[in-house]
Write a protein that binds this DNA or RNA. Sequence first.
DNA 1: GCATGATTCAAACACTTGTTTGAATCACGT
DNA 2: ACGTGATTCAAACAAGTGTTTGAATCATGC
Lengths: 238, 238
Amino acid sequence: MPPLDREPTRGSPDTKDRILAAAEALFMEQGYAATSLRAITAKAKVNLAAVNYHFGSKEALIREVFDRRLGPLNQARLDYLARLEFEAGGRALTPEKVLEAMITPVVQLSRDPLKRGAVFLRLLGRALSEPEDTMKQVLPIHYRDVVLRFKDALARALPEVPEQELVWRMHFTFGAMAYAMAGNDALQLITTCEAEGADDAEAIIRRLVPFLAAGLKAPAPQGLRTSTPQLTTNREAA
Amino acid sequence: MPPLDREPTRGSPDTKDRILAAAEALFMEQGYAATSLRAITAKAKVNLAAVNYHFGSKEALIREVFDRRLGPLNQARLDYLARLEFEAGGRALTPEKVLEAMITPVVQLSRDPLKRGAVFLRLLGRALSEPEDTMKQVLPIHYRDVVLRFKDALARALPEVPEQELVWRMHFTFGAMAYAMAGNDALQLITTCEAEGADDAEAIIRRLVPFLAAGLKAPAPQGLRTSTPQLTTNREAA
DNA sequence: GCATGATTCAAACACTTGTTTGAATCACGT
DNA sequence: ACGTGATTCAAACAAGTGTTTGAATCATGC
């Protein structure tokens, strides 16, 4: 019988964590749909039925894989941004600082006890462009506050950029970040630097922030029809 | 018996094309692994066995979905770049012009007879971050020349940017482009503008090029360990 | 000690997957 | 008109899918 909601104090044997870790790794390697419960339970060295016993279903498992990490990550981003704004007194932040608040928690996660966090980051980078329905439910919930808060911060940092333009540039920014996080060598631009340790993540941020900040600060292009994108979190967008 | 290599002149009934179109659409909606041959053949209104008869296997089908479009697209990019360089005489191009050569063929493809090309573009944008083994074989083959040619053109356009730095910035550039092409509203930044017609694609390029050009032109960050990425096309990188 | 509830386990469930088969149908050159 | 090879079709194939079941095992409170 499923425990329905066991207090996390009681020392459950680590099979739940083992499943989560194995799922994280396999989802990253093969994608969600292509990873079977049998592959997960085999890697985690637990019984096949354990997934349905502890999580209820495969979909609930992937949901928890993301929930477990995304909450703390995005809270750290919000905290970081709040701290920067407090330190700045009333003055507006630079775009570089705003990006730093967005990216630094990612780097910290990549320094996780022995690469567990790094695995998730690559998974997350890919998740942003997965067609899976589950993702279209999970991600907006976690990113809602982050997107709104950072949009406000960037708008203050870049008062000369029209709001519509800024939303598009945030779009591009997330794309570049996701691609960088995914460590995606699909085009195999990069062969070395595969030692994806902490040094690497820090080197990437040092390169990514100036790149994105320059893009965000660029003069707004002229002569555009005012096609009006909007910043919302409505789930029924598509 | 499979025809082994039928000359494309003979008027094969359009079942091959119907399969390709249906596969393209379904791969975009659900991803590769999650799309069954039965779903494809049902949408294409052909017999289930037709896929294996005409293509040999599911993997060969997805390979041909990409081969059919990626060859012409990347050739158009190379031609566009060559034309710009010819027009410039000996002078170096601006980064904006190089990006224009990269992106304009995409926009033209998006104007394809009634949205067929647009569907593929969203699929392609997602393909760059798919873990599927097939992709890691198909994409480098098609992108090898493009990556090398554009890297040279950008290096001439931006002589002050160190080569290592430039490779990273190309990486970020591809990420932002892929994300923009995929029309990915995973974070639901954008609700309006879902009428993804030709106007939209053109508006995106007008916003994307200045953003990326500014990032490419940014002053190189200081104090980096010289972690040395390299531009290669070796398939055994990961 | 035993009883109780949580957890594991092997086995089976119903179902879907990609692929193959062999006969039926079509197109068409002679 | 016949025959030949390409193409379609319904049916089946073995293998793999997520999920469920019911008994076995474990831990723990009394």
